[in-house]
Simulated assay, not measured.
Amino acid sequence: MRPRRSVLYLPGANERALEKARTLPADALVLDLEDAVAPDAKATARDRVCEAVASGAYGERETAVRINGLGSAWHDADVRAVAPVGPDAVVVPKVGSAADVHAVDRALTDAGAPARTAVWAMVETPAAVLRAEEIATASERLTVLVLGTNDLAKELRAEFVPGRAPLLPSLSLCLLAARAAGKSIVDGVYNDVRDAEGFEAECVQARQFGFDGKTLVHPNQLDVCNRVFAPSEADVEHARRVIEALERAVADGRGVVTVDGRMVENLHVEQARRVLALHEAVTARESGETGR
């Protein structure tokens, strides 16, 4: 299991930001060639991002590159430059169909991307939401759905309100599609970097929905995000008790048992094992950062 609690966007043209990211406690970094880069800086940003990926300086952080979208003036050059340096993933904005995924998959392969370079598809239009299952199942190379909630809200003509009621149907459809396809899914960004309380509330909401993590626009959001999407000490202790209790029950010929006043059966053990696996992955990730 690879934790994706915090996925931080970094402007590809900003050399200082790319350098600073080497020490940030993000699970994943998205070096951005799209929205964060002005048209006249695209070529320079592309070279800078490829050099950063090839350096291997980001350690255990999952390192992705967001290329410009299909049909844009920069898409083909982005693919040709990024594929050979082999980032962990290529993030593709405004994916609208399985055909889009197929096109990117073929282009990456033709440009020399290693098999380990995944595709992360951004879902940020009503059409994409309605085709989320088609997108999620389009390719083995596709491993993550990324919600683009800003663009989605714009397309829906929805207001940004606490609790995100206008977006909840779309979030649910995308989550269903990702889980049905066995893929990861990360939530969209929270725009007000000064509103720590609102940001934490949205992280909690996303975790409760079942998202694996959240995309971020500022490093000051990392600590809260990592904490919210990681199992707490109480979660880990409860998971261990669930597994131990059911193992004893099975040894005694029973299929169910009570833990903390609640009935436990095999499906709860599966959940508990996932909690422990995530805890171990997060611990290994953070221990690796401390050791460098």
Rank of each mutant, 00 (worst) to 15 (best):
S6H: 05
V7K: 15
L8S: 09
Y9R: 11
N14L: 14
R16K: 15
L18V: 10
A21D: 09
T23G: 05
L24A: 15
L24Y: 13
P25Y: 02
E34M: 05
D35S: 02
D40P: 09
A41H: 05
R46E: 00
D47Y: 14
R48M: 10
E51F: 07
S55G: 07
G56Y: 03
A57I: 00
G59L: 05
E62Y: 08
T63Y: 00
G69N: 05
G71T: 08
S72V: 01
W74L: 14
V82Y: 05
P84E: 13
V85A: 03
P87L: 00
V92C: 10
G96L: 07
G96M: 13
A98N: 15
D100W: 06
V104Q: 08
A107T: 08
T109E: 15
A111E: 01
A118T: 04
A121F: 07
M122G: 04
E124N: 05
P126H: 11
A127P: 11
T137H: 07
A138F: 15
E140W: 10
T143A: 07
T143E: 07
V144T: 06
V146C: 05
G148Y: 02
T149W: 03
K154D: 04
L156T: 12
L156Y: 15
A158N: 01
E159K: 10
F160A: 13
P162V: 02
P166E: 06
L167R: 09
L171A: 13
C174I: 14
A177R: 12
A178D: 00
A180G: 08
G182V: 11
D187F: 08
G188A: 02
G188S: 00
V189C: 01
N191T: 14
D192V: 00
V193C: 10
V193Q: 12
E197H: 10
G198Q: 02
V204P: 03
Q205V: 14
F209A: 08
F209C: 11
F211Q: 11
D212A: 01
V217F: 14
H218E: 04
D223Y: 13
V224L: 12
V224D: 03
C225A: 11
N226E: 13
N226Y: 01
V228Q: 01
F229H: 03
F229L: 05
P231H: 05
E233G: 14
A234D: 13
V236C: 12
V236H: 11
E237M: 14
R241E: 15
I243T: 02
R248Y: 06
A249F: 14
A249K: 08
D252P: 10
G255Q: 03
T258S: 11
V259D: 00
D260G: 04
M263K: 13
V264Q: 04
E265D: 04
L267H: 13
E270R: 12
Q271R: 06
R274K: 13
L278I: 01
L278Y: 01
A281C: 10
V282A: 12
A284T: 03
R285G: 08
E289R: 14
T290Y: 15
T290W: 09
G291T: 08
